[in-house]
């Protein structure tokens, strides 16, 4: 029996150690303040959890070694025990404290990553709309008036605000080395704040299953110096073609595409679902009167009453 127990322990312990040593995992290799916060949070929580595991495993091993029938006297009769008030209070209160500590950490870090990174709080963020369609990503830069497909270039040391929505199934926008992920949905806009502090190429992807070619929904996030970025924008404006409505409607048809670059955005003719264009009209009956084309119909309903 012994070698099996050993193998069993190894099968748990070895990968655990491997995981601890390997610092090159994407999530633990942050290139910006938001991802750094998350990496630190995760490492902190792993420490706490390893502590809990050590306590449980120590007790477990002790019980199994000491109270196995083969080691005990043949006539030994285990006692009848109802439980101990103090022990039970102990293993209720300690987890409560652990949960409180983790809750505080969770709330603070959630606030951190949901806002503009602290070091850049006074700067105006660069807004980029990232919208998904089956199975690609569209990046619109409203300030620069340019649009890309399946790659996004951003300047370093500047806060970026990604605004996310979808022309189809729910997707999740994720650049693990820069920030945590968030859903892109068809009827509302969600926001990711991030900043990148090291130029380089980082993998970005959709992490939420969205159909047949979901696995190919990856994009490159290229972090450039401010100067390179400005040159790139200028270059796109001068050389890339404009994006027409017809072409955009073709683009959002289901397909897997390579990169594309345009010198205008789809935001003008196909606005994102925010503000007046949001998908839900919560209790707004005057929605009808706002919209000129439905005025007649509206009058008709008035008559019915």
């Amino acid at each position: 029996m012994k070698p099996k127990w050993l193998l069993f322990s190894l099968s748990i312990a070895v990968p655990l150690l491997l995981a601890g040593c390997d610092q090159s995992l994407l999530v633990f290799d942050p290139k910006g303040p938001q991802a750094k916060t998350l990496s630190d949070t995760i490492i902190f929580s792993i420490m706490m959890m390893v502590g809990i595991l050590v306590v449980v495993y120590a007790l477990y091993t002790f019980m199994l070694v000491k109270y196995r029938a083969s080691k005990l006297d043949k006539d030994y009769e285990p006692p009848h025990e109802e439980g101990s008030k103090w022990l039970e209070i102990t293993w209720t209160v300690i987890p409560v404290i652990i949960v409180i500590v983790l809750s505080v950490v969770t709330v603070r870090t959630t606030i951190d990553v949901e806002n503009v990174p602290e070091a850049y709080a006074n700067e105006k963020p660069l807004v980029i709309y990232a919208s998904s369609s089956n199975w690609k990503w569209h990046f619109s830069y409203p300030e620069e008036g340019i649009e890309t497909v399946n790659y996004v270039n951003i300047p370093e040391d500047r806060p970026i605000e990604f605004r996310l929505y979808s022309y189809g199934p729910i997707t999740s926008f994720w650049v693990p080395q820069l920030a945590g992920q968030k859903y892109a949905m068809s009827d509302m806009v969600t926001t990711i704040h991030l900043a990148a502090e090291t130029p380089g190429s980082y993998i970005g992807k959709n992490s939420n299953f969205s159909g047949k070619d979901f696995a190919h929904m990856e994009f490159e996030t290229l972090v450039m110096t401010a100067k390179e970025y400005d040159e790139w924008v200028q270059d796109v404006k001068e050389t890339a073609p404009a994006l027409s409505e017809t072409e955009f409607n073709e683009l959002i048809e289901p397909s897997v595409l390579g990169r594309k670059t345009f010198s205008s955005t789809h935001l003008e003719f196909n606005p994102p679902p925010e503000g007046d264009n949001a998908g839900h009209h919560h209790g707004s009956e005057n929605h009808h009167s706002e919209d000129a084309s439905t005025t007649d119909e509206h009058m008709h309903h008035e008559d019915m009453k």
Binding site: G283, E285, H301, M304
Partner: peptide, 14 residues
């Protein structure tokens, strides 16, 4: 969903 009339009539209309 009670406020989501879209292009249809509202509750008070029907």
């Amino acid at each position: 969903l009670q406020g989501n009339f879209a292009d249809g009539p509202s509750a008070s209309q029907i």
